[in-house]
Nucleic acid binder design. Structure first.
Lengths: 224, 224
DNA sequence: TGGAGAATTATACGAATGTTTAGGCTCTCT
DNA sequence: AGAGAGCCTAAACATTCGTATAATTCTCCA
């Protein structure tokens, strides 16, 4: 058995860094935690279960695709409050809500907040599993683009301030001559920096560099 | 008074092509149609009201930012079915659901389908107005980007097949020489086409052209 | 048959780009 | 003080890009 059951604070991330996914379960009822864990483990998903939102917030989130399955009604922080809290912390783990006594405004608020699904008891196991698959898949994709952006950003951070300025203007479509005028440099200096930018950003072509600037959200306000 | 009340099949689009917005109301109850129309008109919104989904589908959608306010329970096509139908027709008008006897799965399905809000009776007028403002704003933005893309596409369509091919490869970062080899042309020919592409696409710089290719989703599978 | 109009290539030239080699300058750290 | 790093410039050269002019081939159409 790979997955764990319902003990808080375990280091799940050390188990399977491969293509697996982790499902976080939060419910104050131990028997529900156990049955959900069994359900997920039966389809080869790793599980980390907690009895309250606070317990989960204390631990770290893994670097693997994951999602959150929780009851709306929880001791301490409620499910919706946890959703708000995670959003504030910029943690975008997909959430699947489960509730026994929810109402429509509650579900609408959850969905507006980006929840993947909002299930009412009793639900069919397959419904929950489908939602979990959709959620982890969404998380996997999000992590993918986030990783790409982070890689680009780390490359961009290695540029000196001058090099960054040149990259902005070049990506905006200015000629070396214009970049030089803008930064009050000699054209030859711009050429040098431009070459260094290409090397440091590992851009083979100008098209690559422009696309990188695009995904990094780098926009120079080209004057005139 | 500019807005109309609850007569179907009126030509609303001829009224105010400016920055106004139109709210489509669908409800089988005449008095509700009337009161919703009054509410929206009181905040300077144009209204077009219908008694059933079919009546609304027969008319054309305006070129102005708009949204749809409808009851889930309707004669003939239900609200959710209308949502599905509009999605099939590739009509992305934002929808606000109102219901007196809805349940959670219904609201979740609506929200998953892209609904802006799902209100339960009784609701406060301000809630509905807020939702309508959010919806029309979303529609305005969507129309904006759609229009941009459409404009680019119409420019792209004026290119000959050769010119389109050259644009793809140039946007992919290939040099004129490589483009020529790829298309089995002389380099000078590629230069000619490239110049024509820049003119026809109204791209001042290569950066512009690459960004246009990006938003048009033009990607050449660069070999090697 | 003649011609208009494309698609394509050639020649030639000016402008822009990229790289190398070689320096000078200022700042910080040791 | 010296070493190193970052910033800036210069000269020289090869490559690439962009455009203008002219010529070839081909199809389509009157």
């Amino acid at each position: 058995m790979t997955g764990r059951s319902d003990l808080p604070h375990q280091d799940v991330k050390a188990e399977k860094p491969s293509g697996r996914a982790i499902v976080f379960v939060i419910d104050d009822d131990v028997s529900i935690r156990r049955s959900l864990s069994n359900l997920f483990q039966s389809v080869n998903l790793d599980v980390a279960a907690f009895g309250s939102a606070q317990e989960m917030l204390q631990g770290d989130l893994p670097e693997v695709a994951s999602c959150l399955v929780l009851d709306v009604r929880l001791p301490g922080l409620s499910g919706l409050e946890l959703q708000t809290e995670l959003a504030k912390l910029n943690l975008h783990i997909p959430i699947i809500f489960i509730t026994g006594h929810g109402d429509i405004p509650m579900s609408v608020k959850a969905m507006k907040g980006g929840a993947v699904d909002f299930l009412t008891k009793p639900y069919r196991d397959q419904e929950l599993l489908d939602a979990v698959v959709a959620a982890t898949e969404r998380d996997r994709k999000r992590r993918e683009v986030e990783k790409t952006v982070a890689n680009l950003q780390s490359l961009y951070d290695t540029l000196s301030s001058r090099e960054q300025a040149v990259m902005k203007l070049v990506a905006a479509g200015l000629m070396n001559k214009q970049v030089a005028a803008e930064l009050e440099l000699a054209e030859i200096t711009v050429k040098i920096y431009r070459g260094r930018v290409m090397k440091k950003m590992r851009a083979r072509t100008l098209a690559d560099l422009i696309r990188m600037a695009e995904t990094l959200g780098i926009c120079a306000n080209h004057p005139e």
